[in-house]
Simulated assay, not measured.
Amino acid sequence: MNQLELPTRPQTATARGISEPIATPWHEFGPGGGAWMLHPADLRALDPFVLVDHFQLGQPVFAPHPHAGFSAVSYLFEDSADGLLNRTSLGEKNFIAPGSLQWFQAGRGAMHDEAPRTPGRAAHGLQVFVNSAAANKNAEPASFSRDAAEIAVVEREGARVRVVLGEFAGHSVRFGAHTPVTLLDITLSANATLEVPLPRAFSAFAIVARGALAGHRVDGPHALRFDAAGDVVRLAAGPEGVQLVLLAGAPIGEPLAARGPFIGNGPTEVNDMIRRFQRGEMGELAPIHPATS
């Protein structure tokens, strides 16, 4: 006998809880600027993300330096007074304009350099370290970019969302990076609300650039972490409005070890990265400006 199939009962989306604000202390790089830093003591706390620097740079502060085992992702806010000159030992040399994104997937290792194009005009943005799974840590380095004009903007009542990476409101942005993530630049006017669907498997947090969410008033930039359980992130701006960058991605779930700009699965791998850098196997990149720190 055939049994009748009962219609599936519609499921109500479950909102993720929000942590108390996480301090992102200001760290001075030198007279050229600095960053509000989110550097968790537990490197896997934000898996697949390792750290975030919310920077203001008006002068060059770093000489060319190596990366290996992860991706260095630079996103410039639209209000940035100027952009960054980006160079790698892959032969790449380009300009990251305000509102644009540059993704440098270091793989087995390469040299990297970023500096403000116009000294005295501060570049304002985020640099995010995104981990690579063990299977991709020795891959050939690669670089990807998205210009400001390519980034879709979704506007709703009281809300504006730049879909830089990931999915939102019918827009899907992926490229050849080994670790796909979501990066949404969200601005809410005073007391406005917005709901952002996310896969349950994704970890998620926000870097708050200005203002605050309702019930989470903080003076200055800070971070908020969202609980793992739930289908959506529900955002409600406070009376002054808020601008935040929502970052989310599927955890890699592997052991993690780091030393400076090298991220491996253990100390043996990190030491091997250091030796390869010392032997010159990550390429060459001549400095074009003096380091000040």
Rank of each mutant, 00 (worst) to 15 (best):
H216N: 11
L285G: 09
T292Q: 14
H222N: 11
F175A: 11
A201R: 13
G283T: 09
A152D: 13
R117T: 12
T182H: 03
A41C: 00
N86I: 14
D219A: 15
P180E: 06
R275C: 00
R217Q: 15
N191E: 15
L4G: 11
Y75D: 06
L184C: 04
G107C: 08
G58L: 09
G166D: 01
E157R: 12
A152M: 03
R276G: 04
P21F: 07
E284G: 07
H112E: 07
L76F: 05
R225D: 04
W36G: 07
N265I: 14
H112K: 07
G17Q: 12
F175W: 11
G176R: 10
Q59L: 15
G266V: 06
E284V: 08
A148S: 14
H171C: 05
G120C: 09
N2T: 12
R200F: 00
F29R: 03
E20A: 15
P221S: 10
D185G: 04
A134P: 09
E78S: 14
R275P: 00
G33L: 05
V61R: 01
L51Q: 13
N2D: 12
S189K: 08
D53W: 07
G211L: 02
L43Y: 11
P141R: 08
E284I: 04
G249A: 03
I151K: 03
T8Q: 12
R279T: 07
T182C: 02
I274H: 08
H54A: 07
G253R: 04
T193C: 10
V242Q: 01
R217A: 15
P40L: 06
A23M: 09
M1H: 12
G170M: 09
G215I: 11
V154M: 07
I207C: 01
M273N: 13
Q11P: 05
L235S: 02
I96N: 07
R225L: 07
H222F: 13
T193D: 13
P239I: 00
V181F: 15
I151Y: 02
G17R: 11
H112W: 03
E20Y: 00
D42L: 08
A135T: 12
E155V: 14
A15G: 09
R121D: 10
D185S: 04
Q278L: 15
A149H: 14
I252Q: 10
V163I: 11
P60V: 08
L244V: 07
H124R: 13
K93I: 08
M1R: 12
V173A: 05
R275I: 02
H112Q: 10
G280F: 02
G220N: 03
A201Y: 00
S100F: 00
A106G: 08
G17A: 13
A142I: 01
G280I: 03
L6S: 11
M37E: 12
V50M: 12
E150Y: 00
P7N: 02
E20P: 03
E284Y: 07
R275Q: 13
A258I: 09
A148W: 04
L247H: 05
V130H: 05
V128P: 05
E157M: 10
P290I: 07
V52Q: 02
P48W: 03
G264T: 08
T292G: 05
E281I: 04
G99C: 11
P267H: 02
